[in-house]
């Protein structure tokens, strides 16, 4: 086989392997909640599921498309199939690929880069899995401690902890975008208290407002 045939064969194999395994992995992932449902003899709330999915979809489907378009050129074919399945794309897979690209001195868009990025992402995903397995084995004996009543406030406030930390990071990064949505959402929740329990609904206008402000600032070269 000459070089072109090897490259064609490699690309075709990755696409076939990638598509088949992603379809199978999706089926496996979807089956997990259903198995829990069957094992425990409970039914999920259909209206809750549809409501939740619409809200999540409005935020995350456009985000998924943007991430797919932006990150795929950096990840390559094999890297993209593996990264979008194993997650932690921005905080782990992209830096790993960039690091390997530096080490191997490969040029983006070449077969060498494809190979290096696929190897990097595959190794990274396996190492993460192993580290988390080791961690989970250590967490399991700690279950009685983690389920202690005294720790209840910690786990009941895990979402405020996330958004406090993320808020600082993103507000400092983009104060011009942040100020108006933060002010509007705060005033809305102060003067219309019923909105406090509807944060999942508020996310949509708040996200749209931030996107709109961001777009205007971008167009005016103010970002």
């Amino acid at each position: 086989m000459n070089r072109n045939q090897i490259i064609d064969n490699y690309n075709n194999t990755l696409h076939l392997l990638g598509r088949v395994t992603l379809v199978l992995a999706s089926i496996l992932l979807i089956s997990v909640p259903f198995i829990v449902s069957i094992v425990n003899g409970v039914q999920p709330s259909l209206s809750g599921f549809i409501n939740g999915l619409i809200k999540v979809g409005m935020i995350y489907i456009p985000m998924s498309i943007v991430e797919f378009l932006i990150y795929t050129p950096m990840l390559g074919v094999g890297g993209a199939y593996l990264s979008f399945l194993t997650g932690n794309v921005t905080n782990m897979k992209i830096p790993v690929v960039m690091n390997s690209k530096e080490i191997a001195q490969t040029e983006s868009g070449t077969i060498e880069h494809e190979i290096i990025s696929t190897i990097s992402v595959a190794v990274s995903a396996m190492v993460t899995t192993l580290v988390i397995v080791a961690g989970v084995l250590m967490i399991v004996p700690l279950q009685p401690v983690l389920q202690n009543e005294a720790l209840l406030p910690a786990f009941n406030n895990v979402v405020p902890a996330l958004f406090g930390a993320l808020g600082l990071k993103y507000f400092v990064k983009s104060p011009k975008i942040a100020i108006i949505p933060l002010l509007v959402m705060s005033l809305l929740c102060i003067f219309v208290p019923s909105m406090i329990s509807q944060t999942s609904v508020l996310l949509i206008p708040s996200g749209a407002l931030a996107l709109g402000i961001g777009f205007i600032l971008f167009k005016k070269n103010l970002l």
């Binding site: 935020i59 456009p62 985000m63 943007v66 991430e67 378009l69 932006i70 979402v159 405020p160 958004f163 406090g164 993320l166 808020g167 993103y170 507000f171 990064k173 983009s174 975008i177 942040a178 949505p181 933060l182 509007v184 959402m185 705060s186 005033l187 809305l188 929740c189 102060i190 208290p193 909105m195 406090i196 944060t199 508020l202 996310l203 708040s206 996200g207 749209a208 407002l209 931030a210 996107l211 402000i213 961001g214 777009f215 971008f218 970002l223």
Partner: peptide
């Protein structure tokens, strides 16, 4: 703008949650 869009979306998410925590204080 794609790169900024993700940041803006997260700013919006954080604003909604932080706003609700501020509202809860009243």
């Amino acid at each position: 703008f794609g790169a900024h869009a993700t940041t803006a979306m997260f700013v919006g998410l954080c604003a909604a949650f932080i706003g609700s925590y501020i509202g809860k204080c009243f």
